[in-house]
């Protein structure tokens, strides 16, 4: 099978959308790679500043691993459901099915954000504010940026649902869903980095 671009390929049956997708998804993938550098440097900043506690609270006092575990499972599951939404689109299983999977992904994304916000609030209540130390500044520069990406993706998903309501699954919504799927999976990959470097690395 010829893969014309990263992420799910629509295949010949989708004709013009498949053609549009080649450059649109490739362009979006290039953007993801640029974003990967952005995150990579924030990871490096975190590693450099991680030891600078400045007398403030450290990872052991602040990080709550059960909550991080739940967030991880939420994100991973949402990646699966976002993938199933794309499959439903590719195999034309009907708009209802697509919308259903999208709504589930959206719900999981929002649940992740809620958990993350709760974590941040717990941290600040323990004195873990970004102003307290280099470690916390680097943490709050990196992790909420990922959260902001998830929030933006949720907003995009809402806009996409609006487009589907208005136009159904036309070429534009199809390629938009492919790009959205890539972003969703990419944010998962970033989360793996956060989980490993920030949380496990912080506690090690």
């Amino acid at each position: 099978m010829n893969r014309r671009h990263p992420g799910l390929n629509l295949g010949e049956a989708h004709d013009s959308a498949n053609d549009d997708a080649e450059k649109e998804v490739f362009g979006f993938w290039v953007f993801m790679m640029s974003d990967a550098i952005l995150f990579g440097l924030l990871f490096a900043t975190y590693v450099v500043l991680q030891g600078n506690l400045n007398g403030g609270p450290g990872p052991a006092e602040l990080f709550e691993m059960p909550s991080v575990l739940i967030q991880t499972v939420l994100l991973l599951t949402s990646s699966l459901t976002a993938g199933l939404a794309q499959l439903a689109m590719k195999h034309e299983l009907g708009t209802r099915r697509i919308v259903l999977w999208l709504l589930i992904s959206l719900g999981l994304g929002l649940a992740f954000l809620t958990m993350e916000m709760r974590d941040f609030l717990t941290m600040t209540s323990k004195g873990g504010v970004p102003q307290a130390s280099g470690f916390l500044s680097a943490f709050f520069a990196l992790v909420p940026l990922h959260g902001l990406h998830v929030a933006a993706t949720c907003l995009w998903l809402l806009a996409l649902l609006g487009q589907i309501a208005r136009y159904g699954t036309d070429d534009a919504t199809k390629t938009a869903m492919l790009r959205l799927g890539i972003l969703w999976h990419f944010l998962d990959v970033v989360w793996i980095g956060i989980f490993t470097i920030v949380y496990v690395g912080g506690l090690a």
Partner: peptide
Amino acid sequence: HFRFFLHIRLKGQT
């Protein structure tokens, strides 16, 4: 993730 979600392969990929 690259293999199963993003469908990147070493062969057959652009």
